[in-house]
Design a protein around this nucleic acid. Structure first.
Lengths: 149, 149
DNA sequence: TTTAGTGCAAACTCTTTGCAGCTAA
DNA sequence: TTAGCTGCAAAGAGTTTGCACTAAA
């Protein structure tokens, strides 16, 4: 169980610890997926029937401010949140057919990105790399043309 | 003036040409920025006072379906649209300070991405690479440490 | 006792859609 | 003449916020 102590993040902001906030954070930080606020709500409700959507949003915002989460909008209107662990990073392959999300890591790409930032005199903070396409199952049938893969 | 003929995209879809649609497409395809629907509406209204927001959205959707535009959601709730020209592609450096967007191209990164997709048996369609950071002017001052500007 | 946290519902923002009239084919 | 296109306004979807109550410090 990935127990993260929120206290250092709360202190200095005049924030209190609260049962519900800790619960949301715990459930969120202990999964690897890409959750929407609604999905996270459903997970937390297994343990706490009365928790509301607003609290989930508020906690996700807090975690994002603390650098413990990232908010992503893939190709849909809903935001997807993902836990962020220092030093670890991955990018995404997104299937335009079935919506599957595959994570990957590629140090060579990371290095090149660093180079690009440097060349433009940017202090790199983070990045987002999404490769969209079709997974093997969803590969569209090309009619007529003998288009090569 | 970058005049693109929409006919090949309209035919076969049972769609008609229309003055307003052509106008929206023309204005959109002849700028390089990253426009929201509202911003595009304002631009088009300079020439056509009566055009509505819905038409702009509908046309942007059409262009996106045709592969002539991409919809992006940087870190805000509004969608940003950008014209897409076949064979040309660039990525973005986004300054977290002033919001400046710098475009760059890097064939080595592109090649590596292709490799990644292949390795995961994805048919790559397009990708999104955003590098977030601080430009030279906005580089944050780190208090306490003697970090040089 | 003070003030932050919470659920609920209303408000907000962005985008899509239904409809009646307009227009290309 | 037929069916797609349009503006308008209303509806939707996702997220934020105001408020009265609860609970941490």
């Amino acid at each position: 169980m990935n127990k993260i102590d929120l206290r250092p993040y709360l202190e200095g902001r005049g924030l209190r610890r609260s049962l519900r906030r800790e619960r949301v954070a715990e459930v969120f930080l202990n999964q690897k997926g890409h959750l929407t606020a609604e999905e996270l709500l459903a997970l937390v409700r297994r343990r706490d029937k009365k928790i509301g959507l607003a609290t989930v949003y508020r906690t996700l915002k807090l975690l994002t401010d603390c650098g413990l989460a990232v908010e992503r909008k893939f190709n849909r209107p809903v935001s997807t949140f993902e836990p962020l662990f220092p030093g670890r990073h991955h990018d995404h392959l997104i299937c335009l057919g079935c919506g599957a999300i595959v994570e990957f890591e590629n140090p060579s790409i990371e290095a090149l990105q660093e180079e690009v930032a440097l060349k433009h005199r940017f202090t790199a903070s983070h990045h987002v790399l999404d490769l969209y396409g079709y997974c093997r199952k969803c590969r569209p049938k090309v009619s007529g043309s003998g288009k090569k893969p």
